[in-house]
Design a protein around this nucleic acid. Structure first.
Lengths: 249, 249
DNA sequence: TGCGTTTCTCAGGCTATTCACAGGTTGCCG
DNA sequence: CGGCAACCTGTGAATAGCCTGAGAAACGCA
């Protein structure tokens, strides 16, 4: 169903529907700030976004918008998340759903949610995480071709989003969760300068309140693991940010 | 009759009908939550699902949907399970049936029913179990070739879904039921990180309300039996989940 | 019924990871 | 060449996430 990709002039790979129209995503959350945040981030992916603040709105919008994926907060004012899910499924039996849940409420009511191939993230989340999960869901819900779609490649550096494996020039590299997300963000935007603020906004969760120099720190970690003793791929643009590009060029 | 398979983008092997169209399964249960759960899980297998909440609905749907297999709860509001079965058989003489029964009501009648090549699982079931049984039924109802289809292989580790035999490098390994299901799930998704929630949702029964760390515990058991003193195949991705892959790579 | 097996809870231990802090280094400007 | 801002990175503390031993409870089978 989503058998085509295209590469934008900036070098980013976008998911597209077979007819070339953009992917459609419905975002459902009662907190305005969250829907706004998500809408902006997902629009930046080139997707078409519609949002709703409660269950009834979600069903209505789903009916006419016919999204390719839904982001659904489990905690809605008017009805239980599972109820919304049931009605959604009656409208759109095959649409994949990404659930948003509070950190603590996890254990109990998540039961069964990932069983059908759906997925969830806990609040507070990072935008990279949401985007990655959504891409995964959309990719898997689509037609059965497209194999390599889950592997990012920049020069001799590869990152597999399914197995979470990273290697450079054949050597396997072990990354921590945060390092992995940072590298994924860089590799999804090769040859493009990303500011520290951008990186912080995408890779760290939205409620992160720490020092801005974590980014420098993690860039340093990445360099140690990826560039160590090799032609460097991660470059600093003083006063602007960082970028990754193939070593040779 | 189901002589073809294809490999999905996730690397999973899917059953297909000879003409390449998806397998069709009819799910019959009066509890909405059960039909929902099963529908989600079976759709994720790439199958086409229709569901019914009672006997009459089941017969009707079967008549026009012509499923390749039926999941049938023995306890329906309007008619006895055996009656439904009889009428089903009049419509579709050769369709295999997977019975759902309560834990206690088993022995007496089910024994006779499964003689015809059908099968059953008791509630509460795990999705892996239902999917595995269903795959077995569908496979056996089709062309009699592809026996090897029931053996999963990852590196020097093999698991036979029919005989429940597991061996690594020639050494036979005894697993308990839960260990077996966990390993099967891992091996059906090689090289892919599976979260603890995913594992819990698929391998444990849907009413499991316990601690999420049973997964850790059983991973630990599996390692003791499978990786003991060998190159490890089961890997932890801290903060993400677990995955299995051949030792060599 | 009784006995071995299996499942699961609980809790302690341990390591990897995250992050703050602070001092060192680099590049850019006049 | 000095000074400043931007950046880099060593150190270490707090913690999250995972592992596993011990034993209770449930189960299966004779």
């Amino acid at each position: 169903m989503f058998s085509m990709t295209t590469t934008s002039p900036q070098g980013r790979t976008e998911l597209l529907r077979p007819d070339g129209s953009p992917v459609r995503v419905l975002v459902v959350d009662d907190e305005m700030s969250i829907t706004e945040l998500l809408s902006m981030a997902l629009r930046y992916e080139g997707w078409q976004i519609r949002s709703a603040g409660d269950g009834t709105g979600a069903i209505q919008t789903a009916r006419e918008f016919r999204p390719d994926a839904v982001v659904l907060d489990m905690m809605l004012p008017d009805m239980d998340g599972l109820t919304v899910l049931g009605r959604l499924r009656r409208e759109l039996p095959d649409v994949p759903v990404l659930f948003l849940t509070a950190k603590d409420a996890v254990e109990d009511r998540i039961a069964g949610l990932t069983a059908g191939g759906d997925d969830y993230v806990t609040k507070p989340f990072s935008l990279e995480e949401v985007v990655a999960r959504l891409r995964g869901l959309i990719r898997r819900s689509g037609a059965a071709d497209r194999r390599s779609e889950s592997v990012l490649v920049v020069g001799d550096l590869t990152l597999d989003e399914d197995s979470h494996e990273v290697s450079r020039g054949g050597d396997n590299i072990h990354l921590t969760a945060t390092e992995f997300e940072l590298l994924r963000f860089l590799m999804r935007n090769p040859r493009r300068v990303l500011s520290k603020a951008q990186i912080l906004d995408r890779v760290w969760s939205y409620d992160f309140g720490g020092q801005a120099n974590v980014v420098e720190l993690y860039i340093s970690y990445l360099r140690r693991k990826i560039d160590a003793g090799r032609e460097p791929m991660i470059h600093t643009r003083r006063g602007a940010g960082y970028l990754i590009k193939p070593a040779v060029s």
